[in-house]
C-alpha cells in the first residue's frame, strides 16, 4: 500500500513541485532553481481573477448540487418505503454515468444554442421573441453543465448517511410534537453532516480541477485555473503549468482543511 501511494501519488507530486522551479524554452525544459514561474504567476492580475472565478464556479455549483442532491436523497431515503424501489430508483440516477461525461456535457451545446431546442421552444411558446444569447457560451451554461455532471456525487454520500439514520429517532421527534420541518432541521440535517461534507469535498475538488467543461461550455471565453494549466501544457510550458498546479493544489488542500475542521468525518463515520 505504502509503495503504491509512494509511486503513484507522492512521487508525481514531488516531480511537479520540482519542475515548477525549472525553466523552459520554446520546445524544451531545462533543470534550474528559479522563481520565475511563481513570480510571473503572482505578478499577474489575471491569476487572481482566474482563481476568483474558479472559486465562484465551485461555490455556485456547490450550492445547487447540495440543494438538488439533498432533495433527491431525502426522497429516496424517506419517501420511498420499499428497499427494492429505493435500489431501483438509485440505480436509475446512475444511468447517465454509463456515457462519457464529455458527451453528456457536449450534448447541451446544440440544445442551448441560438437556434437550439431551448430557444426555439421558448419562441414557439411566445415566451421570448429573440433567442436568448446567454443560454450558451456563458457562466450560465458552465454552471448548468457542472451541476448536471456532479449532482450525483452529492446524492450518493448523503443518501448513504440518511439510510443509516435510526428511524426511531424521527418517530421520537414526531412523538415529541416536532413538525416535519423541525425534525428535518434538528434531526436529519445534523445527522447527514458527514455525507454532506463528503459530497462537498467531491464537488469542490472536481469543479476546481476541471478545465474541459469550462472550455467547451464557455466556448473558450471564460477561464478557470485548470484552463491556465492546460494552455501552458499545450504551449509546452511545463514549468509554468507545474507552478500553477502547485498553487492550485495548495489552495484546494486549504479548502478541504477548512471543511474538515467543520465536521470530524472520521468520528461521524
Amino acid at each position: 500500500m505504502a509503495a503504491v501511494l509512494l509511486s503513484f501519488l507522492v512521487a508525481p507530486i514531488v516531480m511537479i513541485v520540482i519542475v515548477s522551479f525549472w525553466g523552459a524554452t520554446e520546445y524544451s525544459i531545462y533543470p534550474a532553481f528559479q522563481f520565475d514561474n511563481y513570480e510571473f504567476l503572482f505578478g499577474s492580475s489575471v491569476t487572481y481573477r482566474v482563481f476568483l472565478n474558479t472559486f465562484k464556479y465551485a461555490l455556485i455549483t456547490w450550492a445547487f448540487t447540495l440543494v438538488i442532491g439533498f432533495t433527491v436523497a431525502y426522497y429516496l431515503a424517506f419517501e420511498i418505503r420499499s428497499l427494492k424501489w429505493q435500489i431501483a430508483l438509485f440505480l436509475l440516477c446512475t444511468i447517465p454515468f454509463w456515457t462519457s461525461n464529455i458527451i453528456r456535457m457536449i450534448s447541451w451545446i446544440p440544445f442551448l444554442g441560438r437556434n437550439g431546442l431551448a430557444n426555439s421552444t421558448l419562441i414557439s411558446w411566445g415566451v421570448i421573441d429573440e433567442p436568448l444569447e446567454w443560454l450558451l457560451f456563458s457562466d450560465f451554461s458552465v454552471i448548468l453543465a457542472f451541476v448536471h455532471l456532479y449532482t450525483l456525487f452529492m446524492v450518493v454520500p448523503i443518501f448513504n448517511t440518511m439510510m443509516r439514520i435510526d428511524r426511531a429517532l424521527i418517530e421520537a421527534a414526531r412523538d415529541q410534537g416536532a413538525s416535519a420541518w423541525q425534525s428535518l432541521t434538528h434531526v436529519i440535517i445534523p445527522l447527514c453532516k458527514p455525507g454532506i461534507m463528503i459530497g462537498t469535498i467531491f464537488v469542490t475538488t472536481l469543479v476546481m480541477g476541471d478545465f474541459i467543461t469550462v472550455r467547451f461550455m464557455s466556448g473558450s471565453q471564460r477561464a478557470n485555473v485548470g484552463r491556465l494549466i492546460s494552455n501552458d501544457i499545450n504551449l509546452l510550458q511545463y514549468p509554468s503549468a507545474s507552478a500553477t498546479a502547485v498553487v492550485l493544489l495548495i489552495t484546494v488542500l486549504i479548502v478541504i482543511g477548512l471543511l474538515l475542521r467543520l465536521v470530524d468525518i472520521r468520528k461521524e463515520l
Binding site: 446544440p110 444554442g113 441560438r114 437550439g116 457560451f137 464557455s218 466556448g219 473558450s220 471565453q221
Partner: peptide
C-alpha cells in the same frame, strides 16, 4: 463581440454550420 473561440477544426465547422 465574440460568441466563442475555437481550437479544433470541428469546433469551427460547428460554430459556423449552427449559425452561432
Amino acid at each position: 463581440q465574440f460568441r466563442a473561440f475555437w481550437k479544433t477544426f470541428d469546433e469551427s465547422v460547428n460554430l459556423m454550420a449552427s449559425g452561432e
